[in-house]
């Protein structure tokens, strides 16, 4: 995608706002003063060394983790203990996990229709048609009646993406979606993600796939020790990292 193409889909509407967010696991200060805004149609890639708090950060966005200080606003709704708001936000925010987390006792189709039927109260037939559309989009329509255990890793992750899309989310969160995959399957998942980006989906991806970051990201964020150290457009970010920790990190991952 060209720079122009990338910025085209971005609107001024604020999707996610994090202001001065802090989080502790017990005594351990895991997120420190996180300030981050994501606009509709924007695509953010987060990278950083393992244990730096990337997963914790994006899991705070749909309240899989609770933050203790600061505010997180998703689509104008602030995340507090209010269960109604949490549900509402989770409906609008899709998430894709490193280990897929497909439901092993349901077929791929049932995985996809579960939430539309039980959360969106959609008739079964409609849900199935919707699911079939997304399964086609991720190129596994023929796997619909199989169980997750019968699919390859790449197919499972694509099924998981389809499952999330069936809720028609406004934002998608990806937590290292390709790092549990064999090398030959990484591309098939990344291709799907690039296509999603082309369609204008707002995305936050934790990933170390730098090629992917260059292709789709509006911004790359580098985290270390629970802080956002540096954020920039991908060209700048890779060409001229300012912080020495960013430089060190980039030199390490680009070597391999």
């Amino acid at each position: 995608m060209s720079a122009q193409e990338k910025s085209m889909s971005v609107s001024d509407e604020m999707m996610i706002e994090m202001n001065g967010v802090h989080k502790w696991y017990g005594q351990f200060h895991v997120l420190k003063n996180i300030n981050l805004t994501v606009k509709r149609g924007e695509r953010i890639v987060i990278c950083g060394p393992s244990g730096s708090g990337k997963s914790t950060l994006i899991r705070c966005i749909n309240r899989l983790e609770e933050h203790q200080q600061g505010e997180i606003i998703v689509e104008g709704t602030e995340l507090t203990g209010n269960l109604k708001h949490i549900e509402q936000i989770r409906r609008e925010v899709g998430m894709v996990f490193q280990h897929f987390n497909l439901f092993p006792h349901l077929t791929v189709m049932e995985n996809c229709t579960l939430a539309p039927i039980w959360v969106r109260h959609m008739p079964k037939q409609e849900a199935e048609e919707l699911a079939m559309n997304y399964l086609r989009q991720v190129k596994i329509p023929e796997q619909a009646e199989k169980f997750p255990g019968q699919l390859s890793g790449g197919q499972q992750q694509r099924a998981a993406i389809a499952r999330s899309l069936c809720m028609r989310p406004k934002v998608m969160l990806f937590d290292e979606p390709t790092s549990a995959l064999d090398p030959e399957m990484i591309k098939e998942v990344l291709d799907i993600m690039i296509e999603l980006a082309r369609d204008g989906m707002t995305m936050i991806c934790v990933t170390h796939e730098m090629g992917f970051a260059k292709t789709v990201a509006n911004r790359v964020i580098f985290m270390d020790g629970g802080e956002i150290i540096e954020q920039n457009e991908p060209e700048e970010f890779f060409a001229n990292p300012k912080n020495e920790r960013t430089q060190l990190f980039l030199s390490q991952i680009l070597q391999h």
């Binding site: 802090h22 502790w24 017990g26 005594q27 351990f28 200060h29 420190k32 003063n33 203790q68 200080q69 270390d224 020790g225 629970g226 802080e227 956002i228 150290i229 540096e230 912080n243 920790r245």
Partner: peptide, 17 residues
């Protein structure tokens, strides 16, 4: 305010302790 990368580890707020 701290410089990027220099935020110290703080103790959790009182209710969390």
């Amino acid at each position: 305010q701290y410089e990027a990368g220099r935020h110290p580890d703080l103790p959790p707020p009182l209710v969390e302790r």
